[in-house]
Design a protein around this nucleic acid. Sequence first.
DNA 1: ACTCAATGTTGTACTGTACAACCATTAGTG
DNA 2: CACTAATGGTTGTACAGTACAACATTGAGT
Lengths: 150, 150
Amino acid sequence: MTENESGRDGPIEIIQREMTAFARRARASAARMHPELSLVSFTLLSHLEDRGGCRATDLAAYYTLDKSTISRQVGALEKAGLVERRLDPDDHRVQVLHLTERGTGLLKGVTDSRRVAFRERLAGWSGPDLERFAEYLLRYNAGAPEGEVS
Amino acid sequence: MTENESGRDGPIEIIQREMTAFARRARASAARMHPELSLVSFTLLSHLEDRGGCRATDLAAYYTLDKSTISRQVGALEKAGLVERRLDPDDHRVQVLHLTERGTGLLKGVTDSRRVAFRERLAGWSGPDLERFAEYLLRYNAGAPEGEVS
DNA sequence: ACTCAATGTTGTACTGTACAACCATTAGTG
DNA sequence: CACTAATGGTTGTACAGTACAACATTGAGT
């Protein structure tokens, strides 16, 4: 092994820098595009839609966020009428969270316009390049350290 | 063009989701790894090192941050002894920012340990895959919307 | 010389987040 | 069964990061 691992450090440096750059911008960028739904809210709502409802604890575990953070986020989403809490009849500690109709609608709008933005941004890419890039990202994120599953 | 642009939407959806997931985690992840230097501080210090010193306004423009944000960030970095402000003799409005010795040292430490982390995370990747992934990320970020150059 | 632009700092406010203390409820054990 | 422990959630508090607007200082252009 050479000093920089046989030239692997070049690409690694770039990957590090570019992922970091992206991360630094993403929140603000998302906020500019969708002032009505932050990146965090968007992902929480998406998760709710994917799962067809889940508990606050599940969200906390999935996103590695504190339960208090989730509690307040969900509180805000509820106040905005995007989410509703249903008491679980079997376990009265639990509130099952569901998208409201309004939440579903807003999520759909934002999802669509995000898709359009990504489509535009990736417009010049060939099909195979898109597929490889997607695959690389999956692989990269799958290797996330302990407890950072998404 | 079919409804979903000839199957391009699959990968696009994945790219969107995975980039977003990464962005959501990056800050907290960086903070866990390096409690002594936030992701933002790290990038500011890096920029200073790259450029060999620059003005607060340059940082603000480069990172699309408000000048007040930069002012306070730099203030904190200065208080921590990582950065020093030198009055520009030609223009007394300007402070040229430079890494201190301590700043250089800390930056080096964090940079190294980040490199190690990324190396580990990408350990199973082939050379060509690393290169392609790096290339894709560059290309992707180069296509960032207006004013989001890094 | 006067006005205008550029550089920064400070006051204020909001979001996202964590941690710790707490309440309510359920589960496990002697 | 009764008590203790674990689980689910909320609330108090604190901090980082950020923006916007008002301001002070300094330099530039007519």
